[in-house]
């Protein structure tokens, strides 16, 4: 059997996630996913961990400088030999660079310096040169960037998060069509799982915040009512 069929059993044992934004939780728990992933060859397990570590913000230590984040990305890319996985990591880091640039601009900062590293990938120079353009002149590469800029300007963080996750998910979805039972298919599944998990958690956090706000508003009314009643 070729490497294309390396993980037929593993892939077949993984449940397909519901459509993104409809799923209230990932199709299986992380504990169960990790148990299934135990069949990975040791070198593949190491590669998967590398990819997850560099793409999952929660696994990055707090307080890393831009240069450290970029160096980490480059170090991981140099250790990954698989072309598809390199593409996945590179594209995700480039998306983050674009979003970081949007945030900088939203904070009112000027064009990033060209003499020290602040972003990752092929579009760093293009972004700096087109700093005043809403989409940094990258409409052809990232058609969603203009919409992201609008949402950031409106401070609609939920819609922005949704847009970014959707773009990452769609890209993985497209790549998944080219890999059925290979190691790449396993990595793509795990990354899609992470996106579903992240949205489910984010959604829950937003719901809790909204509940707190409503509760506070309700209690405020109640306090007023009881005060009025007591008077």
């Amino acid at each position: 059997m070729s490497s294309d069929d390396a993980y037929v059993m593993l892939i077949s044992s993984l449940p397909k996630p519901e459509a993104l934004f409809l799923a209230k939780q990932p199709p299986l728990s992380r504990l169960k996913l990790d148990a299934r992933l135990r069949v990975l060859a040791p070198e593949d397990a190491t590669t998967l961990k590398l990819v997850e570590n560099v793409l999952d913000w929660r696994r990055l230590p707090m307080g890393l400088s831009d240069r450290e984040v970029i160096d980490r990305g480059r170090a991981v890319l140099s250790r990954i030999e698989n072309e598809t996985l390199q593409t996945i990591v590179r594209e995700r880091l480039e998306i983050r660079t674009c979003v970081a640039a949007l945030r900088r601009r939203a904070r009112g900062e000027g064009s990033p310096p060209l003499d020290r590293p602040w972003g990752f990938g092929r579009w760093v120079g293009q972004i700096a040169r087109n700093w005043t353009d809403p989409s940094f002149g990258l409409d052809g590469v990232f058609p969603w960037l203009r919409e992201a800029n609008r949402l950031m300007a409106e401070n609609d963080s939920v819609a922005l998060e949704r847009l970014l996750l959707e773009q990452s998910y769609l890209r993985l979805q497209r790549l998944a069509g080219e890999h059925s039972f290979s190691f790449e298919a396993v990595v793509i599944y795990v990354l899609k799982w992470s996106i579903v998990d992240r949205w489910a958690r984010y959604n829950a956090e937003v719901a809790v915040r909204r509940f707190d706000d409503l509760t506070e508003a309700g209690l405020a009314d109640y306090a007023t009512l009881s005060f009025e009643g007591g008077a």
């Binding site: 059997m1 069929d5 037929v8 892939i11 077949s12 044992s13 993984l14 449940p15 039972f181």
Partner: peptide
């Protein structure tokens, strides 16, 4: 042998799920 091997692994994976 190869064909049944590939399909059989998928079958076992599906049984797990």
């Amino acid at each position: 042998a190869i064909g049944c091997g590939i399909a059989g692994q998928a079958g076992i994976g599906a049984i797990l799920e």
